[in-house]
Simulated scan of single mutants.
Amino acid sequence: MPEGNDRSASPPTRRVVRVVELIAGDTGPAKGAEIADELELSRSTVAAILDTLDERGWVRRAPDRTYRPGPRLRTLAGASAAAAAMPTGTEDVLAELAERVGCGASLSLVTRTESEFVAVTAGPGRLPAGITTGTRLPLRAPAGAAVVAFADERRQRAWLDTAEPGQRPGLADALEHIRTTGAALWGIDAADPAMLDVLSEVVEHLTNDPAAQLRERVLSLLARISGEPYGSAQLRSRKRQPLTHLAAPVFDGTGRATWELHIGPLRQDVDLGERRHYIDELVRAAASLGPPPAGG
């Protein structure tokens, strides 16, 4: 419908709805000019609409200047394509896992560029900090380690390159341990849990706030300070040690590590027996969602 012939009760509202419907559809990312031409609207009108939608988190502009659904639109739409394709019984498995380990549990889809949380169960605690279903984070080490550990060497190198040079040896060691034990463990300095807790509260307050971009910046900060991977000595040690979270891979029907299952004790002192309990429960739950390939 040409812009001049829009006879709805509220033409401006109708134009916004049409833009949102197009972006939320199955046509894929599109540039502002393409959206304007498709809807027969002026490019200046569409540009103004997109700027406001992007500011409020309803759409997101990519570096190539295309637009795609933003976090608010994905949440409103309900389960995303990733959530729709997640393993059968995920919600029940997460609820049971959270109860058995006494903390929150979540499942994320890990792609080459991001990690999208497709299911989150708070359980007795909060995990991940400030994250809800539909949250997407850029794939930067250490995020996605449990999936990257089973990826090809090229993808592993690209993932390691997102970390600081001094962190890469420890992260490479962590990938090896994940392949051996089936789980990743992360610790944290004694002073950092308080910082995590404060940032978590900030994210929660911003969940329903128009400042969606600020919320995403805080989430990115949380991802970068989420802790250090356990090394060989820590895994074997009987000493009580801090433990923020654990992750295990979940495999799809082709035997490819696709999802990451998380639990987050966020505890300062965990003994060897407790660490083994967390690992056993996590690996068992991950296997129930998607058994590893034969010989894996």
Rank of each mutant, 00 (worst) to 15 (best):
G296K: 02
E91A: 14
L196K: 07
A233K: 10
L199M: 14
L97W: 03
L53H: 04
A163H: 11
D152L: 04
A248N: 08
L243K: 05
A146L: 02
S226R: 10
S200I: 00
A223K: 00
V202M: 09
T13I: 14
G32H: 08
W186V: 12
I225T: 12
A248F: 08
L127A: 12
W186H: 11
Q241R: 15
H245T: 05
L76G: 11
A247P: 01
A172V: 01
E201P: 00
I178D: 01
D6I: 14
A81K: 11
S42V: 05
F251Y: 13
E274D: 14
A287L: 01
G290V: 08
V120P: 05
E116V: 15
L222H: 02
D271M: 06
I35L: 08
E55R: 15
A172S: 15
E40G: 08
Y278V: 05
R168N: 08
T52N: 10
S220R: 14
A285F: 06
E228N: 08
A81N: 11
L22G: 06
V46H: 05
A285Y: 06
L199C: 03
A85T: 09
A47C: 03
V101G: 03
D161C: 03
W159E: 02
V20G: 03
G253M: 06
L109P: 01
R43M: 04
E3R: 10
R154E: 13
A105T: 10
G182P: 06
R14P: 02
G25Y: 07
R276C: 10
L107C: 07
V250E: 04
P265D: 03
N208G: 11
R136E: 12
P2I: 10
R236Q: 13
G32P: 08
W186Q: 04
T132H: 11
V101M: 08
G32Q: 06
K239M: 08
E274R: 14
S44N: 14
P249C: 10
